[in-house]
Design a protein around this nucleic acid. Structure first.
Lengths: 351, 351
DNA sequence: TTGTACGCGTTATCAT
DNA sequence: ATGATAACGCGTACAA
């Protein structure tokens, strides 16, 4: 009497064993045909196994594979958020690159909390991913780096790889944009266009990469050789709202004197624009605005926003590359300014 | 002679066995303390295990847990893309809800290909997730639904749950927005504002939810009781570019006659605006525009775009809910119009 | 080339 | 309450 599967109730998933039995071969043989890399299987067996797998709808149990192989084809991506246009673009780029490298990506969201990040890394270690990519940036609470570093080190010791994107605050391999140089070049070009007096919106959260943008911009404007350069650096909350609110809180006289607002991200630049408009200023007639990142959203913004373009795909590809290979050194991907209508040429001020 | 770990080379990850040995208890006991739900362990043992785990930096191997328990706390999200503002917001909402339900989310991106979707579902089955949530929509190639359905059915038979979001083209539980009603109400409100002659931008890809938006809008305008209603429905490529290009290809006379463009998504509405501006039209002075979804991007768009708001969090929460519990019936979440400056009141045409 | 036997890290069943 | 022991599904030496 053959034992037939009853139609009721949740059946058990089809296993390799089932396939092997159905094909009349041993389990290892089925394994070799379906998952193994060496193809030392007779064609007749091969076909029977394939057919059986197809008929039964077999799918390898990834967990079992991972545990048997001791390694998985998953990389974990830890990111601040996913609804933010910049980060979602970054996540998309990484998933694209990962996929073409035959990797799965497991995304974990920090919500801009260091504690959460630590917790996540700990949990991710349990997934035994091939690599952990930290693309987060922008924390609400102060860095508790030590524990995080320790956790990551432990992970590395067990063969995992750690890659940082756009942040170099931890002692691990990093791939970043050339934040300083990008911002510097932007400032130089803006100086040529006649801009002298700028408000720079940095980040209240101390982030190295963001600080570099601030410093690059200030340096660029200063070294332009132009007379009458004035830069005021402020550090509102690191968000659209933060930028907008800071603009709203600005002293009227101070605002009047400004020719330009440079925000360290497009997101903040857009928040600044919102604030400026709330105060009755027209862009760029009354005041110019520039950002950084060149997010997709900009295509729908009027006037077109001057910004610094960053090659997400290149960074993502480098990151994946380093996630797989022992790698050698850090990498800096160029960033270059794109002048658009939000910063037209103006007359150099008479002073 | 104690066997000491050498400092060189990748160490093996710390296992439950290591912890147990270090604490001088059996493996099952360690398991009960660290992962088991029943806490029938003496306090002294309990503490020793905890300490050992902490000291060694133990993290449970999720793959091993999954295989031993026969179930995981992961849900798989299949989505069209992640860089699109609507989908990234949807993904974010789902991750939020999932997290507060103690679930991990594994995201897979379709890239708008049905073949890819099928492939993904097959692969996802291997991850043995608790549920598979399909939030994709918008396919480039024609639906090969049968195979997909079969694959999903097989998954369900093994105890997995399948939940559809914003699409009801497959015979599985669905949670959708009230696309028809939302669009209908929008049309009614616009009719009140004086709009009569509208171009409706649908989708070349036949998607039920999108078709409902088209039909709802057309119906709403028709039933408004106003005289001289004219609606033209077109089906450009389902994207920003598709909408823009369609506008650019429009006959000059036809364009002149229009009072309003309604696009089935904000994304397309923004593309339409870009096209209209390229043709020298001002919004809303020369022509009004309305969209659907109420994506975040809209906060930076001028003029503020009239649209239909959808409660992503509610949908996400419903989806997660259904992903966990056997569930009962489909759910439709309301969508309501938001009138903004892109569709000001106009005089009813003299005809 | 194919099959037997064992190990991967964990949970679950069952004595003790 | 605790500890042997058997699964879970798969990969892989090793033997045949």
């Amino acid at each position: 009497m053959t034992e037939t599967q009853s139609d009721a109730g949740p059946r058990r998933p089809v296993t390799l064993d089932d396939v092997a039995r159905h094909a009349g071969v041993s389990q290892p043989t089925a394994s070799r045909v379906l998952n193994g890399s060496d193809r030392k299987v007779a064609e007749s067996y091969r076909k029977r196994v394939m057919d059986a797998a197809d008929e039964l709808g077999y799918t390898p149990n990834l967990a079992a594979q991972a545990i048997a192989r001791g390694t998985s084809r998953t990389v974990a991506l830890v990111i601040s958020g996913i609804s933010d246009p910049y980060f979602s673009a970054m996540a998309a780029a990484i998933m694209r690159q990962a996929e073409s490298a035959g990797l799965r990506v497991s995304i974990a969201v920090t919500e801009r909390s260091v504690d959460r990040e630590l917790e996540l890394v700990r949990e991710l270690r349990g997934q035994q991913p091939r690599a952990i990519i930290l693309a987060g940036t922008g924390y609400v609470d102060p860095p508790s780096g030590d524990q995080l570093v320790e956790e990551l080190r432990r992970y590395e010791e067990t063969g995992g790889r750690v890659v940082l994107i756009s942040r170099s605050d931890l002692p691990f391999e990093t791939v970043t944009f050339d934040n300083h140089e990008g911002a510097r070049q932007l400032a130089v070009e803006l100086a040529v266009l006649g801009y002298r007096r700028a408000l720079v919106l940095g980040s209240a959260t101390p982030l190295l990469s963001m600080q570099q943008r601030v410093e690059g911009f200030v340096a660029g404007l200063a070294e332009s050789g132009a007379d009458g350069v004035e830069t005021v650096v402020r550090h509102p909350e690191f968000s659209w709202q933060g930028a907008r609110e800071h603009i709203l809180s600005l002293d009227e006289n101070e605002l009047q004197r400004l020719q330009l607002v440079f925000a360290i991200t497009d997101d903040m630049a857009l928040g600044a624009i919102a604030g400026l408009r709330d105060r009755g200023l027209r862009i760029p007639d009354d005041i110019a605005v520039a950002g950084f990142d060149d997010i997709t959203t900009l295509r729908d913004v009027v006037p077109p926003l001057t910004t610094v373009h960053v090659a997400l795909d290149e960074v993502a590809s480098e990151a994946i590359e380093r996630a797989l290979n022992p790698a050698s050194s850090d990498r800096t991907v160029p960033a270059y300014p794109i002048i658009r209508a939000s910063t037209p040429a103006i007359e150099a001020p008479a002073l």
